[in-house]
Amino acid sequence: MNAPANSTRGVSLQVRNLWKRYGRQEVLRGVEFEVQAGEVFVLMGPSGSGKSVLLKHIIGLETPDAGDIFINGESISTPGVLERHRLAMVFQSGALLNSLTVAENVGLYLSEHRLKPPEEIARVVSEKLAVVGLEGAEDKMPSELSGGMKKRVAIARALVMEPQLILYDEPTSELDPLSAIVIAEEIVKLNRRMGVTSLVVTHDRDLAFDVAHRVAVIHEGRLLAQGAPEDIRQSAHPVIRRFLHAEFNPQTVT
């Protein structure tokens, strides 16, 4: 996939030498990469490799032990930088507020910050739900939605913020293959239509190579490689080869 030519809305992201330790466990060990504005960058790696923790650092939910993160060249540790840029995150579970309806969830950012009057919020909510193919779901409660629908509502909620950077945390985990394809299409569609910078963390190999402009592989808190999807696919690194080419062979089961 080629990077979109018109990517004026996205922001660039630089992660510099990021370290994080919880107790005696080192979760991030000098992670360093750069995402260009308007790019879809996929961070791939097995479970427990530090992907989600890295996302939490980028969105400001965690503070690194060392290293820094820059958005459009400004460190997010500088007061006001995170607030000045519109960052949104699509959580692995969707993280919808269970006590609110779909419409209230999607419109929460606008209503809590009083950015638009209620009628305008209702219009924006319907528009964003239509973008993710969920027209008419406004009055449903999150408990009435399937896993795939929850993730699409979470994407609609992120879109309401008109983000410059969207972080997707395992967007296709726990989904059937058809729903996973719908989500992958949404990621690509949003990137092409709005030029938003997207950082996707996943262990889904198909998703990674389908949507990415560039791919990085993280293992045990270290970035093993980064580059174009083809380069990563042909990497000779043994851990990457094992991760990318692991297949279940029933003949070997004793």
Binding site: G60, L61, A88, S93, L96, N98, E112, H113, R157
Partner: peptide, 25 residues
């Protein structure tokens, strides 16, 4: 129980990413 489950299921993190202060909300 309500706030605990919101914390465990990342709803409070989601609020923070929307710049919504959990103390206010």
């Amino acid at each position: 129980a309500e706030l605990g489950s919101m914390r465990v299921y990342q709803e409070i993190d989601a609020l923070r990413t929307m710049n919504i202060n959990p103390v206010h909300f």
